[in-house]
Amino acid sequence: MKPADILTVGITGLNAHDNPGPGIAVARALKDAYGDNIRLIGLAYEALEPGIYMDKLLDKTYHIPYPAAGATVLLERLLEINGMTGLDMIIPNFDAELGNFIKIAPRLAAEDIKTFLPDAVQLAARDKTQLHEFAATYGFKVPDYVNLTKAEDMEVTGDKLGYPLFIKGKYYEARLADNADEAKKIFHDIANRWGLPVIAQRCIKGTEINVAGLGDGKGNLISAVPMRKLYITDKGKAWAGVTIEDAELVDLAGQFAKTLQWRGGFELEIIKDNAGNLYIIEINPRFPAWIYLAAASGQNQPAALVKMAMGDDVQPFESYEPGKLFIRHSWDDVVDIARFQQFSAFGEI
């Protein structure tokens, strides 16, 4: 049994490695807001997800099945975990798992486990393979792109988009190709990892800016914090970034939340070209891995999301602090191998 005033929240995305999931940042933001009044339950796919071993953040972690196993298997496992922990809410943090979580959200709600997610139509509308339709429908600027199902089409696509161009997986990963041979090689790599289609996207030159946002599902933008990437890894991930003050970016996030009636966290990945045009290159349907920066600069989006899920009336944030810098780093945690064995063998720790 747990005290009634302590929230129990399940969190996925504990893979805090060089292409990090947002789970640890979400957990950190929630700990900041709730302190000892929250129990965080990790939901992990693999035994080497670093978050599993971060005892100061997570009270308990359980293994869950991969998204490919389907919604029914996921639901069964979550109900089993609920029986052991008494979950009040789950915050899924991976693109690839959202479809399953959206499907089972009504069944979770029936068990009094809350989520705060977009619906399947909204999720599909911002899919990176549908960005042309999204841009045409809602009046946003997106870079030209082509969905590819075979590498041979790269020749024609390269002529159309020009080089360099980005080759992207449908869920994750983006790599720059300088010519057709390189593009074909990357196509095969990404297709093997993430499946088809693979997306070839025109490379827009400019400043890379991301906006972390939160919509209430009624068309209101609760929060938006823009961040300029200062250090980018070879996987295109921000390893350092700074909050910036730009009303146009916040307006863009507001248009997105309004037009899609977006419910939950989201991230707009934007290129601002030299003429000041804002191109949306990707829309992630969840909090970004750098979401703790938003909390540290005055807008704790994960905490606001939990409050909305619990039925509280949450008013839009009015300000945040520009000039807050995050610098990610590597740190070796040392644990006894028995803990790894415990999680691997029994699916919980």
């Binding site: 200062l230 700074v242 910036i244 003050e245 730009d246 520009p322 000039g323």
Partner: peptide
Amino acid sequence: KNIATSESGFIFNPSTGDS
């Protein structure tokens, strides 16, 4: 107006993130 400066000569443009 929003340019931040410090006595040590650090300049930060909060609109662009340039320093």
